Simulated scan of single mutants.
Amino acid sequence: MNIDGMKCSRCRKPAQHRLPSHNARFCDHCLGIFVRRQAEKAIKQFDMLGPGQKVLVAVSGGKDSLALWQILLELGYQAEGLHLALELGDGSFGEASLAASQDMAQRLGAPLHLMNMAELAGFGVQEIAWANKRSFCSVCGTLKRYQLNKVCLDLGFEVLATGHHLDDEAARLLGNLVRRHQQYLESQWPVLQGAPGAFAKKIKPLCRLRGAEIKSFAKSQGISVAKGACPRSKGATLPHYMDAVRLLEERMPGTTTNFYMGYLEDKGGPPPQPDPAQRCSVCGMPSYADVCTVCRFLANTAERESTKRDALQSPD
């Protein structure tokens, strides 16, 4: 549908999409060109990928990761998908996420690797959270980062791409600044360098695009996405910072780009390459301690489950 009779800023045909941050209006075709160029610019600006390089895309079934997968393929990269199924206590959301990921793989004619968190870890996320007296989101995030990195390397990929966009990164930056999380601020960058056999290179090619722009792109492309939000996200703080970013952007278009890109410019460069010298004595993955956080989580969970079994088997 044409917006108030307005014309596309690029081709002058009827416009379906308004991008206040760029003072631009696009038709479906030109929006696609704009989105691909922004992703390509981010890839070149931050040295994310080489021409035609092989990359694994973490695919959740949402608009951002599905759009990223399509964009990377359109830009000529060898992009395969990885869907890591999580136990979220809501079968319908998990099933919808898996179905959307599988539909996209079929549409793109690209391989999709399917993994299950409970099978990889040996326990459900909720069991691990209870055993370690941690919040579900905290445990889920730790396990997900660990498994995505490990699976990426196991599958023979050197690069892992995620669908984090400009709003995500700006909200995370705002939260880290407000809470003065210096460690997280030091590592915040659109690219985290890898180390052979230890860390996959992590990239965020959508870091120049706002969530609303990606949503418009996905809709214009007819991409079928999973509806709803994570049912376990109640109590998470990031959405509050996301709301603050959106409010500022609505009142002052362009603020999000200036805030995030300005921070990166002042920072001057990425964090140093990680040192994989120290390894976990249990799983062999890089760790600052003798036993990594994930292996400690799993050991505590195994001990709790063993105690529960013993209590059930013991006579009254």
Rank of each mutant, 00 (worst) to 15 (best):
residue 254 G to H: 05
residue 279 R to T: 14
residue 278 Q to A: 15
residue 249 E to W: 01
residue 198 A to N: 04
residue 210 R to L: 13
residue 249 E to H: 06
residue 220 S to P: 03
residue 268 G to A: 13
residue 208 R to I: 06
residue 253 P to W: 02
residue 216 S to T: 03
residue 277 A to E: 09
residue 228 G to W: 03
residue 214 I to L: 11
residue 218 A to G: 07
residue 258 N to D: 15
residue 229 A to I: 11
residue 263 Y to R: 10
residue 259 F to A: 15
residue 235 G to K: 09
residue 233 S to A: 08
residue 282 V to Y: 15
residue 247 L to A: 10
residue 217 F to N: 08
residue 236 A to T: 10
residue 242 M to R: 15
residue 233 S to Y: 03
residue 281 S to C: 10
residue 222 G to N: 01
residue 254 G to M: 07
residue 253 P to G: 10
residue 223 I to W: 07
residue 221 Q to Y: 06
residue 239 P to T: 08
residue 273 Q to V: 13
residue 224 S to A: 01
residue 212 A to I: 12
residue 283 C to H: 09
residue 249 E to N: 10
residue 216 S to N: 05
residue 254 G to Q: 09
residue 247 L to R: 12
residue 245 V to I: 09
residue 250 E to R: 10
residue 233 S to V: 05
residue 226 A to L: 01
residue 255 T to A: 15
residue 271 P to K: 14
residue 263 Y to L: 11
residue 245 V to T: 06
residue 255 T to I: 13
residue 246 R to E: 03
residue 206 L to S: 04
residue 213 E to P: 13
residue 194 G to T: 01
residue 276 P to C: 08
residue 236 A to Y: 06
residue 209 L to K: 09
residue 252 M to F: 07
residue 221 Q to T: 06
residue 256 T to V: 14
residue 274 P to G: 14
residue 246 R to V: 04
residue 255 T to L: 12
residue 219 K to Q: 05
residue 261 M to Q: 14
residue 197 G to D: 06
residue 204 K to M: 04
residue 233 S to G: 04
residue 208 R to N: 10
residue 202 K to I: 00
residue 253 P to T: 07
residue 247 L to D: 07
residue 208 R to H: 10
residue 194 G to E: 00
residue 222 G to Q: 01
residue 228 G to Q: 01
